[in-house]
Nucleic acid binder design. Structure first.
Length: 315
DNA sequence: AAGACGAAAGTGGTTGA
DNA sequence: TCAACAACTTTCGTCTT
């Protein structure tokens, strides 16, 4: 599988004209989040949805031969970045002839040691372990490839800075995933990350702060806007609601409403109001569920927004 | 009966002396 | 190290649809 190069992502998203779910052509492009969103059914099409095959097409074997000019792409999610030699498991020599039984045993031993040598230093072993854990968590959270690559890169830096010793690999991995999501502006809450790891939310938060400080990641605090896409699509709300919610947040920001408050709560309230206005009512309970806050918090933010923005909500 | 509302007390973390 | 503090949660009774 090929990794989608960052600069190509936009082009690839541009090529999609139809929602694979409902076939609608009303697609909203949101390059900042690397997403394409169907206005009709709310499906979020991100790069994991995109065909990740080669960028060329081959019409016969000869063309394939000619065009296939590179090996596997470099990746940060394999501990040696996928650049090391692999010994094939096939008992064939380089000409494709079968290897005689006499030398097979030799070949087996060679493979065994080669595998062992590949993961040699303790740092390598640590990274190999960590990437496995990371893969598990990322898969549970449905995180796009981009995030995994970023997280892997951050983890490598953390190892280089000797940050892992004395801390559990699990907590550092969780923190890097959290950081990677934030950096790519598709934040997950600490709760979400904690739910797929064996360490506490508190631990992850602490490790994240340390990570951010020592590596100088310079990640700004997340904003309510960053959550609108995801919450709305989980609530199956239309593009119109999203637009309204964004508009509400923009005005709220100008007036300084909700500053210093938890961004998920503000996002949840904005969505609640927007859904009411458009007539796609969702209960506070439902929204609270996906936003990971309580109904009370939604009510409080909701009240502030309605009061300070002078929004009329007809019941 | 479910949802919305709001008061009051509780929780875990930050801040500043 | 401790207390004050802000944000948020939990809990519960009441009102609305």
């Amino acid at each position: 599988m090929k990794t989608v190069k960052k600069k190509d992502k936009k082009e690839i998203l541009d090529q999609i004209t139809r929602c694979p779910e409902c076939g609608s052509t009303h697609l909203v492009r949101d390059y900042e989040h690397g997403e394409l969103v169907c206005e009709d059914c709310g499906l979020v099409i991100d790069e994991t949805y995109v065909d990740q095959g080669p960028e060329w097409r081959a019409f016969d074997a000869a063309q394939r031969e000619e065009r296939e000019r590179t090996g596997a792409p470099m990746t940060y999610t394999i501990h040696d970045k996928g650049l090391s030699t692999e010994i094939s498991w096939k008992n064939r020599d380089s000409y494709g002839r079968p290897v005689p039984t006499r030398t097979r045993a030799q070949l087996y031993r060679l493979r065994k040691w080669h595998r062992r040598i590949k993961v040699s230093s303790s740092a390598d072993r640590n990274i190999a372990d960590a990437l496995q854990i990371m893969e598990r968590m990322a898969a549970n959270l449905d995180l796009p490839k981009d995030v995994r690559e970023t997280a892997a890169l951050i983890y490598r830096k953390a190892v280089r800075e000797n940050m892992v010793r004395g801390r559990s690999i699990e907590s550092v991995v969780a923190a890097t995933l959290y950081a990677a999501c934030r950096q790519l502006k598709i934040p997950r809450t600490l709760d979400e990350i904690a739910s797929v790891s064996r360490v506490s939310k508190k631990d992850i938060g602490r490790t994240y702060r340390l990570l951010s400080r020592t590596l100088g990641l310079g990640i700004s605090p997340s904003e309510p806007e960053d959550y609108i896409e995801r919450f709305c699509s989980r609530l199956r709300l239309s593009g119109e609601v999203k637009k309204k919610a964004y508009a509400i947040l923009r005005r709220a920001k100008e007036l300084g409403v909700g500053r210093g408050k938890g961004p998920t709560g503000v996002a949840a309230a904005a969505i609640y109001i927007a859904a009411l206005q458009v007539g796609e009512r969702r209960t506070q309970r439902e929204i609270a569920e996906v936003a990971g806050v309580t109904e009370v918090t939604i009510r409080n933010r909701y009240k502030e927004l309605v009061d300070k923005l002078g929004i009329e909500v007809e019941v």
